[in-house]
Design a protein around this nucleic acid. Structure first.
Lengths: 343, 343
DNA sequence: GTGAAAGCGCTAACAA
DNA sequence: TTGTTAGCGCTTTCAC
C-alpha cells in the first residue's frame, strides 16, 4: 500500500450542504473568522466582513443551528406548551410569542399537553432533549414533578396566564380571583341580583368562579347558581348550560361565562328562545376574543392582553438567554372589563 | 512542568448534563453500545439492554437531540408554516400534525409567514438552519423561489389545503374550484336564483369564488354579486359585507361565504335587521368549524377534514425521513357540503 | 453482539 | 484582528 496515500480509510459523507468551511475557504480566512464575521461583525475588519458576506451570498450558505447550538450551548429554540392549540384562548399569546421571538432570531417549538396525561412525560423529554433556551408554559403542565424537571435541566421557565406568589421561575399573568370579584361587583353595580355562572371545568376558570361566588355572597345577594361544563368550552355547551339554567333557576338575570365561546352559546340559546339580552338576561364573557365586539348584542367581556403576555414572555427568555439580569420575575398584566351591550 | 500531568491546558465545560458517556460508564459498556440499546434495542443483548435502561433511569438521562441530529443528519424536527396561527382555519390541521408527529417521536416547529413579506426570507433561513426532516406548508409561502430553496436544501416539502397538478414535492388537499362549483349547484338545486358571494381576498378563496361565479352563470342564473373583504376574515367584515350586499342587491336570496366566521357575521347582521334565514336568505359557510353546527340557525357549511390533512402530512414526512418510499405523492382529501338549517 | 475511531458543523478558549 | 486547537454529544463506519 502506498504510504503516501494519506486518504483516510473510512469517510463519512456530510449532508452535502455548504458549510462554514466552504465559506471561509472562499473568503480566504479561517473558519472561526468567518464565524465571527457572521455572529459578531464588529470583531472583524471591514475587509474580512465584506469578503465573508460575499462568500455567503455566492454559496447560499445557511448556518447549521444544530451544530451551532451544540457547540455554544445555546439552541435559540424556545418551547411553548399549551393544553391544545385549537382552543382560541392562548392563540394570541402564542402568536405574539412566535413573532417576538422570530424578531430576535429565536424559533418556537410547540407542544400540546392537553391530551393523554401519561404522554406528558414524553413531551417533556422531547422538549428537554432539544435543549431549548427557555420554555413558556401557557396553561397547565400537570405534574409538579415535570415542572421541576425542567428547572433541573437548567432551562428558564416562564409560567403565563396566572399569578402565584411562588412561581417556579418567571411569571406573567393576572389574578383569576380578582377577575371573579370584579365581575361580581360589576353586575351588582348594574342592578343585577339573581346571578349565575357557567364555567369550564379547568382549574383557572374554577378559581374565577369561586371568587365570583364568594364576592356575590359578600355583597349580600343570593348564592349564584354554578353550572360546570367540560373543558374545552364550546358554543354548544354554552347553549346547553343556559337551557339547564333556565329550567333550574328561571329568575336568573345575569350570567358570567368562563369563555367568550360559552357566552356566544348563551346568547345563541337566548335568541332561539326569544329571551331578551340584556333586558331579561345580562351576559358577560371572558377573553374578549375578536368576535366579541361584533356580536348582536355586542358582548361585554373580560379583556386579557394575550399579546402583551406573549411579548413579555419572549422578553424574559431572551434576556435570560443573553445573560441579561431579569430584575422583575413576576409581571401582573392585569385585565379590564369591556362594557358593551350584553350587560 | 510535570510531564505526567496530562491534564489538557484548556478545557471547555459542557452543559453539565448527564451524557451518553455517563450512562455507558454506569452500565459498564461503550457509549456506542448504550446508544444502540436506546435506539435499536433489538441489536443488543437483553443483559446489556437491562443495564443501560437502569442506568438511564438512575441518572435521569435525556439524550441531546442537537448532537444526535448533527451526527445522524436527522433532526426529528418538522417545520410547519402557516400564514398566521390566530386564524382558525389551519388550527385543526396543525393540531393533528403536532399530535401525529409527537406520536412518532418528531417535534413541530411553527413559523408564521403572514406578516411582513420581507421577513419571509428570514423565516426560511431560520427553518433551513435547523435542518428539519420536513416542512409542511399550510397556506401560502409567497415566493416561488423560497419554496425551491427548501427543495434545494434537500428538505421534503408537503403542500396542504390545495390541489395542483404540479406540486413541488408532496401534496395533500382538495380542489377549491370544485368547492365553488358544488356550492353553486347546491344552491341552485335548492331553488335559489339571486346568488352572491362574500370572500376574503386570499388566493384560494378567490379561486373558489371564481368557480362559483362561473358555475352559476353556466346554470343560467344571473351573475352573482361578489363582495371582497380583506383577509383574515372576521365576523365584523361579514356583517359589513351583508349590509353592503343588501344595499346594492336587495334581491339576493343566497350568500356563499369564504369562511364560517364571515358566515357568522352575515347571520348576525341578518338577525339584527330581522332578515329571516334561511327563508329570505340562505347562507353557506366554509370550513365547518366547531361552532357551525350549534349556531341559530345551524350553519350549512363546506366541511374540510383538516385533521386528515394533518395526519397525512405527518405520514408523508415521516415516511420520507425513515426512508420508506412514498408511492402516492398527491392525496385529494375531498370535501362535503354539510346541510343544516341556514341553507 | 460489541467496540474503537472518526467526524457531523460549529464555537469557546487560548495564543499570537 | 486573526488563527490554532479542542471539543460540544452523538452516531456512522469499519473491525472483531
Amino acid at each position: 500500500m502506498d504510504p503516501s496515500d494519506t486518504r483516510p480509510a473510512r469517510r463519512r459523507r456530510g449532508s452535502g450542504a455548504v458549510t462554514l468551511h466552504d465559506v471561509a475557504r472562499l473568503a480566504g480566512v479561517a473558519p472561526i473568522t468567518a464565524s465571527r464575521a457572521l455572529n459578531t461583525p464588529t470583531q472583524v475588519s471591514p475587509d474580512v466582513l465584506q469578503r465573508v458576506t460575499e462568500a455567503v451570498s455566492r454559496t447560499g450558505y445557511v448556518p447549521n443551528r444544530l451544530a451551532g447550538g451544540l457547540a455554544s450551548l445555546r439552541s435559540r429554540l424556545v418551547a411553548a406548551v399549551v393544553p391544545t392549540i385549537s382552543g382560541p384562548v392562548f392563540l394570541q399569546t402564542v402568536q405574539a410569542l412566535t413573532a417576538a421571538l422570530a424578531e430576535r432570531g429565536y424559533q418556537l417549538m410547540l407542544g400540546q399537553s392537553g391530551y393523554a396525561l401519561e404522554r406528558e412525560d414524553a413531551l417533556l423529554e422531547a422538549i428537554i432533549g432539544r435543549r431549548p433556551d427557555g420554555i413558556v408554559l401557557t396553561g397547565i403542565l400537570h405534574s409538579d414533578q415535570g415542572r421541576r424537571r425542567l428547572l433541573a435541566a437548567g432551562i428558564p421557565v416562564v409560567e403565563t396566564w396566572d399569578l402565584t406568589p411562588t412561581p417556579l421561575d418567571m411569571l406573567v399573568g393576572f389574578s383569576h380571583a380578582d377577575v371573579g370579584r370584579a365581575v361580581a361587583a360589576y353586575l351588582h353595580g348594574r342592578g343585577r341580583s339573581r346571578l349565575a355562572a357557567v364555567s369550564g371545568d379547568d382549574e383557572r376558570a374554577s378559581r374565577r368562579m369561586q371568587a365570583f361566588v364568594a364576592e356575590v355572597e359578600r355583597l349580600g345577594l343570593p348564592r349564584p347558581v354554578l353550572i360546570q361544563v367540560p373543558a374545552p368550552t364550546t358554543l354548544a355547551s354554552g347553549r346547553r348550560a343556559l337551557a339547564e339554567l333556565l329550567s333550574g333557576a328561571p329568575q336568573t338575570d345575569a350570567v358570567f361565562c368562563s369563555s367568550d365561546l360559552l357566552a356566544l352559546g348563551v346568547l345563541t340559546e337566548a335568541q332561539s328562545r326569544g329571551l331578551a339580552v340584556p333586558r331579561r338576561l345580562a351576559v358577560v364573557g371572558f377573553g374578549d376574543l375578536d368576535f366579541a365586539a361584533d356580536l348582536h348584542p355586542a358582548l361585554t367581556s373580560v379583556h386579557i392582553d394575550g399579546d402583551a403576555i406573549g411579548r413579555q414572555a419572549a422578553q424574559f427568555i431572551v434576556d435570560r438567554a443573553e445573560g441579561r439580569p431579569v430584575k422583575q420575575r413576576i409581571v401582573d398584566i392585569g385585565f379590564s372589563i369591556v362594557e358593551r351591550d350584553s350587560a
